[in-house]
Nucleic acid binder design. Structure first.
Lengths: 237, 237
DNA sequence: CATTTGGCTTGATAAATATCAAGCGCAAAA
DNA sequence: TTTTGCGCTTGATATTTATCAAGCCAAATG
């Protein structure tokens, strides 16, 4: 494990309050690996051997059933994923693949569970992370069940605009087909949904999005604190 | 708080391993209340003042947006709900109402957070519960995104049949309109979905469900461990 | 006992979403 | 530079799901 990655991990909310001793033990068992794009890192149903931390690049979490597939989330630096499975020693519920050249820190789940048993500060940090994960998924479910696909897209764009600094124009960070899947629609429908938002000042050219009048778009999107708001700290999956 | 409720709470996985001292402190601040049917216990967005535990009756968790409403879950004895919000001291993401005459233990979130800080066994139990909650919601999301409404119904029926002991006939535990909302469809569509499962040996008369040939139904439902399987222990919400 | 209420069902229709089949356009590879 | 591939778009169509409007039935009410 390279020295440059360790301080990065140490600063994450999840590891910040651990004792130095337990942190070092945990890091000793871990390692760093670089992956090319489009590599499947883990598969749904596999035993959860490692807790993963993305330090460079990006990773897609997805799930499949009956020859269908859906994007559940994309994980960007510096977030962990599959924490719940690692802690519970339960099989992964999602698969993961790199979207681009990516660098991952991998900590054996066994060591994570040991640290969880021994280090109280770590156990508490895990609670905070898991509570956040849970709330994120609940919000996502509410969006899926209460909103139409156009409404989901409109809210996604408003959230992204806010996240990227609030400028009228910003770039999509994921491919449209993946965005469509994430939002629970087909790529064809995403194209049409984008066009149907034109009257609300939305235009998308390639990956470049322009929302000329966020307030106008908000009259359609009706963003809600309890669906679109984000809790503090870093997101984990 | 009545004495009869305390041992019941003590036996829950969440409280089982707490020190007697911390448990008693936590119980001293709590109280028990009986509610008539159809009472709104908490509302989306409210500050999370209490951790709730259902000891009798049943409670519906639901969420609303833009004049629409959806059932997220039903909580039955002896489960807790709104643990994540209590721990994070964050607003509720879901509302809750009694479905029938119900009895609830209510523990001030403040006291729960104090116990979480002081009692390491409790902190660890919370991790286990939250991990489970998280995994439940992820499975639910997968079902919503990967399956049609008929497939969701078919799998729901197979899960219920298993849960109630595996007999060919069993009773629905929630009203059809709530089941429809839980499954992400309208009541009208639930009626039609039920009829469309007749060729697979499903018949529903009132609340009485008969699945004459589960294997046949399973050829349509294609139940999956990673969507329909349930983790060990008690479910929390 | 009659009446009312509310949940459920059914049919007809409308809207939302998916599928299929081209074609377009950009970017990577030859 | 040309070619190729792939993601994106578009139009036509099919499927799924929702909405609207009765009507039915059983449980609750007077």
């Amino acid at each position: 494990m390279r020295e440059t990655d360790i301080p990065l991990v140490r600063e994450l909310p999840l590891f910040r309050d651990m004792s130095e001793e337990h942190f070092e033990t945990l890091m000793r068992g871990g390692y760093v690996q670089n992956f090319p794009p489009h590599v499947e890192l883990i598969s749904e149903g596999d035993p959860s051997d490692f807790l993963h931390i993305v330090t460079e690049g990006s990773v897609e979490l997805f799930a499949g059933w009956n020859d269908r597939e859906t994007t559940m989330a994309t994980v960007e630096p510096h977030s962990t994923f599959i924490l719940a499975a690692s802690i519970k020693d339960a099989p992964y519920l999602m698969s993961a693949r790199t979207l681009e050249k990516s660098r991952l820190v991998m900590l054996p789940s066994m060591d994570v569970r040991t640290a969880f048993e021994k280090d109280n500060a770590f156990a508490r940090a895990i609670v905070t992370e898991l509570a956040q994960c849970y709330r994120s998924v609940v919000k996502n479910t509410k969006g899926l069940k209460l909103r139409s696909s156009i409404e989901r897209l409109a809210n996604y764009l408003l959230r992204q605009q806010k996240k990227t600094g609030g400028d009228k124009s910003f770039d999509l960070t994921i491919e449209k087909r993946r965005l469509a899947s994430y939002l629970g629609m087909t790529p064809e429908n995403l194209s049409r949904a984008i066009k149907s938002l034109q009257p609300y000042g939305v235009s998308i050219d390639g990956i470049r999005v322009t929302v000329s009048d966020p307030d106008d778009l908000a009259t359609l999107a009706k963003p809600s604190m309890w669906i679109d708001g984000h809790d503090a700290d870093t997101k984990t999956f």
